[in-house]
């Protein structure tokens, strides 16, 4: 106990403690299991549309969203399953959505790319790269107008920093001092392209910094440091500190979509990245914290059993009735009265 270097890491200080780590371990495993199930379901022909798995990026979702309140607001991307689960959405409902079934988040009308759960403040994934940035800014305007203490988190990929809304939305949040945490989830790739080859200058953080936002750069596969940093940043934003920009480095271990074998990159590169993936790293930290392997194995088994059950149930859910195609379009000029 007189070892000064050891003590702070084990109890708060730099570390976040075994309990919080265990929470992240559970959430990350759930996301991984969800993505693997979704990929399997697609291979089985049960997912009619494209899915963008977040395998390898689970720490970003859990570390960041784990520091949000239920009524805080999240805007996500086409690769949004993990963020949505970490914000508190029910993966069983999400799975039904991916399968295009009644009882999915949107009764099968949105699918993976438009996954949303407004009941937990998840205001939508987005099929348009970068579009969520300006929507997030406006969600924060509404919070300001209503005098709430909520914050907005907007996660986007490295590819989004080359779209116009990136400039417009960050500048907007800065000039109005809005409560938004922008997160550039940098997985090195935008579709088949190495994003760095398409990005001028020193990159996302420098761009955000030039617009006057404070920037934090982090290892996006280290859930502990993500958790710690987000806790502080979210508190600052909530107390009126204005917008913040996080640039987190992770890696897309699977293809761009579940159907993409990603042959455009080296196997060695991917293998090296597998050795730094976030879930095993979290497990290693838990062992260091004194949690035993039996406990971890039990959590893994529980997660897999739960996911298998959700999959079964999702498969049993009926397709949406055809009338749904005409619902939720608009009140005025409702297509149920006139669609032609």
């Amino acid at each position: 106990m007189n070892d000064d270097t050891e003590t702070p890491r084990r109890h708060g200080g730099n570390g976040i403690g075994p309990e919080r780590l265990l929470h992240h371990y559970r959430v990350m495993l759930l996301i991984r299991a969800f993505e693997e199930t979704a990929i399997r379901a697609q291979k089985n022909g049960q997912v009619p549309g494209p899915i963008h798995p977040s395998i390898g990026q689970e720490a970003v979702a859990s570390g960041i969203c784990g520091n949000l309140r239920r009524d805080d607001v999240l805007l996500s991307t086409h690769r949004g399953h993990g963020h949505t689960i970490a914000k508190g959405a029910d993966p069983a409902v999400m799975l039904r959505e991916l399968l295009g079934r009644e009882g999915g988040n949107s009764n099968g009308k949105g699918g993976s790319m438009h996954i949303a759960d407004f009941s937990v403040g998840m205001l939508g994934a987005n099929g348009v790269v970068g579009a969520n940035i300006v929507i997030a800014a406006g969600a924060a305007n509404a919070i300001r107008l209503k005098g709430d203490e909520r914050i907005v988190v907007c996660i986007f990929g490295d590819g989004a920093v080359n779209r116009g809304p990136f400039l417009e939305g960050l500048n907007w949040a800065r000039i109005y001092d809005l409560p938004v945490l922008f997160v550039c989830e940098d997985n090195s790739y935008s579709s088949t392209t190495v994003t760095a080859n398409m990005t001028g200058g020193p990159g996302p953080g420098a761009r955000a910094g030039a617009l006057g936002l404070p920037v934090t750069e982090l290892d996006g596969n280290d859930v502990e440091s993500l958790d710690r940093a987000t806790r502080d940043i979210a508190a600052t934003i909530r107390s009126g500190g204005g917008p913040h920009f996080m640039h987190v480095h992770t890696y897309r271990l699977a293809g761009h979509t579940a159907a993409d074998p990603a042959t455009y990159r080296d196997r060695a590169e991917v293998e090296a990245r597998w050795r730094r993936e976030p879930i095993a790293r979290c497990a290693a930290r838990l062992i260091e914290e004194g949690v035993n392997e039996t406990t971890l194995a039990a959590i893994r088994r529980e997660t897999e059993t739960a996911m298998a059950e959700m999959y079964e149930k999702a498969l049993a859910a009926p397709p949406p009735p055809q009338r749904r195609a005409f619902e939720d379009v608009q009140d005025i000029g409702d297509p149920r009265q006139e669609a032609f």
Binding site: L123, V134, G138, A142, L145, K146, P165, W172
Partner: peptide
Amino acid sequence: PERIMDTPISEACIMGAAVGAAMMGTRP
């Protein structure tokens, strides 16, 4: 100025922000 809000010349953000603010229960 909070309810008659001056904006930068950022049409995408003006419209996009309105979408976000509308989904949050205001009427921009």
